[in-house]
């Protein structure tokens, strides 16, 4: 596969955590051989959806260089981000990638004025030369997120509501005109009545500012609402990937089906009951398909070997034996 024209490319990325002591400890593959890419031409919003323990946050932290991958490569504009060491390379990196964190009250130091982060970003990353220039930049991004300069500058985090503060953090991330936002559960701590205002902000950033976004969430409904593509993660693997319309309305992978039938939707009531297993399963340690123990379609092969990623004709990827050798070609 040609690797040009990619803004972000993950190549067989894994993260292994050691649990316990040096000798008796076990290994946990929090992210297991994940490949994913975002084109640089047209901005897109890609959702990474998974439950707790799926590895979605670990993946985000690797892209943000907060932890290093154990295996594989993460390329940003064809450059390996773990190789960026020099100050100017790191500066360049921060001009392209910016984060939005889950809890805005934890993301701002509560002893500092919120605007100090905006000024830091203006001077250090955007290269503002004067106070006027910085003020102008700040006023512009605050307006883009629907806040006024006067309301924000000089105030401390505690003086904002969660929704307002999260908008400030979106504004700050927008300042260097990044190509990619990494948003890890940006609305899970925000009240339901204002959640959509922030989701809409990501759409606006994509349409008006050409910013792509990796939206990490456990919430399928907002993921459907906002994103062009969806990757479903399960126990460290992306088990299904494709256009969000297709993935969430006609899921291929049995796990995606289970997720879809389990979320408490507000438009369709649950039909027949699902059954929770009484036994506690150890899915990480499985050498076969990690979902095999819970899957209604399990065959012998599922428990023995790991399924490959299969590409379908309609532009999806699915990691399941059900589709092997059928009408789809293998990668």
């Amino acid at each position: 596969m040609q690797s040009s024209g990619k803004l972000l490319e993950l190549k067989n990325v894994s993260k292994i955590f050691k649990i316990g002591g040096l000798i008796l400890g076990t290994e946990l593959r929090a992210v297991d051989n994940v490949s994913l890419s975002i084109d640089s031409e047209k901005p897109v919003i890609v959702s990474i959806v998974g439950e707790s323990g799926s590895g979605k946050t670990t993946l985000a932290r690797m892209i943000l260089r907060l932890i290093e991958p154990s295996e594989g490569q993460i390329l940003l504009n064809n450059r390996d981000i773990t190789q960026l060491k020099k100050a100017d390379e790191l500066l360049e990196y921060r001009k392209i990638v910016q984060p939005i964190f889950q809890n805005p009250f934890a993301a701002f130091n509560n002893l500092r004025r919120v605007s100090s982060y905006l000024y830091d970003t203006a001077y250090s990353i955007c290269g503002a030369k004067s106070k006027e220039e910085a003020n102008k930049m700040i006023a512009e991004v605050l307006e883009a997120v629907g806040l006024s300069f006067e309301k924000v500058v000089g105030r401390y985090p505690k003086q904002f509501s969660g929704g307002e503060l999260q908008r400030v953090s979106v504004a700050r991330a927008l300042m260097p005109r990044p190509k990619l936002l990494i948003a890890d559960e940006p609305v899970s701590m925000v009240d339901a009545s204002i959640r959509m205002n922030i989701m809409n902000l990501f759409k606006t950033l994509k349409d008006d500012y050409n910013v792509s976004c990796l939206y990490i969430t456990h919430d399928l409904s907002t993921a459907y609402y906002v994103s062009d593509f969806i990757a479903i993660m399960f126990r460290g693997n992306i088990i299904e990937y494709g256009p969000s319309d297709l993935v969430l309305t006609q899921p291929l992978h049995p796990y995606t089906e289970l997720l879809m039938s389990s979320i408490p939707r507000v438009d369709k009531k649950w039909q027949e009951d699902i059954k929770l297993s009484g036994i506690e399963v150890k899915e990480y340690e499985s050498t076969g398909c990690k979902f095999a123990l819970r899957c209604p379609y399990t065959k012998d092969i599922c428990k023995k070997s790991r399924p490959k990623v299969i590409k379908t004709n309609d532009g999806r990827e699915v990691m399941c034996f059900k589709y092997e050798g059928k009408k789809y070609e293998e990668e």
Partner: peptide
């Protein structure tokens, strides 16, 4: 304001 799967209509908070 609640998003619904299968319905992309613009919603606001």
């Amino acid at each position: 304001s609640l998003p619904r799967i299968g319905d992309r209509e613009q919603r606001s908070g």
